[in-house]
Design a protein around this nucleic acid. Structure first.
Lengths: 195, 195
DNA sequence: CGGTTATGGTATCGAGTCGAGATTATACTT
DNA sequence: AAGTATAATCTCGACTCGATACCATAACCG
């Protein structure tokens, strides 16, 4: 194991499987009354915090355009997977919330089924796989000047507070100057900035 | 480095970046007069050997249906990226060949641009990344009972022959019982079976 | 206050994907 | 010769997608 850096792995040996894997999973996203675009939106909304469950944030996350996302959101609403509601204190915006039907269909997410294969991987491979993908994604985000959509724990605007009796939650966001519930701090955020 | 297997990496830390990376690259596949489906087909045809450059093989590679691929192929032909020709000795089938225009546009392939980011990765990470992705893809292929589309070198039907003056090439395929040019043996094949 | 500009979302359009199913032509089998 | 399998195409309806125009609300500024 001394010369672990020999035997160069060509970029193709990473790009080709990556590309085909993504394509094949996508091909299975036409089942269960949803299609790939709708799956992507549903997955995002399941992970987004209260500042981020809007069509605009979804647009940025997916690297799409507002018009396209508007259509997809309407399809999801029509099919009963999400509901729309007015956003508190911002009449232009809207909140998108999963219905019970929306939450339950996520169990059949084709990407989620990949998790089984991941469990069979060795610890070293899992660690390096996560690290490599994280860096590749970071590069792609930088190239497209896109947002990171990370969790509070890695955000420069996050201030963790000790437990308190405050019902609004123990933490605080310095950017929006708002209290953060413990649950919300575990979800991805449009405003996230690493730091 | 002794306890390299501690600190479990959750499946989500692999699936989420993987999913978003694939989505973001896909979002950039609308440039250059092509769209994602057409990019996928063009990339495949650039890598397929002489037995595998048909609509049917492309259909299997992408996990799609014949009708869909037929449309995409016609679009690529209409746009001048590929040409269609009759297949030798099989009148039902067709060969799809990249035009010079098709070959040159591949330089702008959004997936290819990922290769730069891969070069920045460390050797260990690159190795494990390739290994992990290969295994995840193998699992996906098994689940969907799909073909591997590997190279001759890993195929159980391949017989490497010594150099000869035979113009048809030095190698041989035991399945189709045909000679194989050195060039073709370096391209992916519908008939590939690991072993 | 009024005007300009920015922002969040929708309406509409045309090109194209996608799976499903029917159709045509060729090949193989018995 | 009849039946079946295979390679590809055609047609259909539902949907994605970017582009553009549009509307409402918000922010800013003199």
């Amino acid at each position: 194991m001394a010369n672990d850096d020999d035997d160069e792995v060509s970029a193709e040996m990473i790009v080709w499987p990556l590309e085909r894997l993504a394509r094949l999973i996508r091909a299975r996203e036409h089942e269960d009354a949803l299609n790939p675009a709708q799956w992507e939106a549903l997955r995002y909304l399941d992970r987004a915090n209260g500042f981020s469950n809007s069509p605009g944030a979804l647009t940025q996350y997916l690297g799409a355009t507002k018009g396209t996302i508007s259509q997809t959101v309407m399809a999801l609403e029509r099919k009963g997977f999400i509901t729309k509601a007015a956003r508190e204190g911002e009449k232009r915006s809207v909140t998108l919330v999963l219905t019970p039907k929306g939450k339950s269909v996520l169990a059949k997410d084709p990407w989620k089924q990949l998790a089984g294969g991941i469990d069979d991987l060795g610890g070293k491979t899992r660690r390096r796989l996560a690290k490599g993908l994280k860096e590749l994604l970071a590069g792609e985000l930088k190239r497209g000047k896109l947002k990171s959509f990370g969790l509070c724990a890695s955000c420069r605007f996050f201030r963790e507070k000790g437990r308190s009796a405050d019902s609004a939650g123990p933490h605080h966001c310095m950017l929006l100057n708002l209290p953060l519930s413990a649950a919300d701090s575990q979800r991805i955020c449009v405003e996230h900035e690493p730091g």
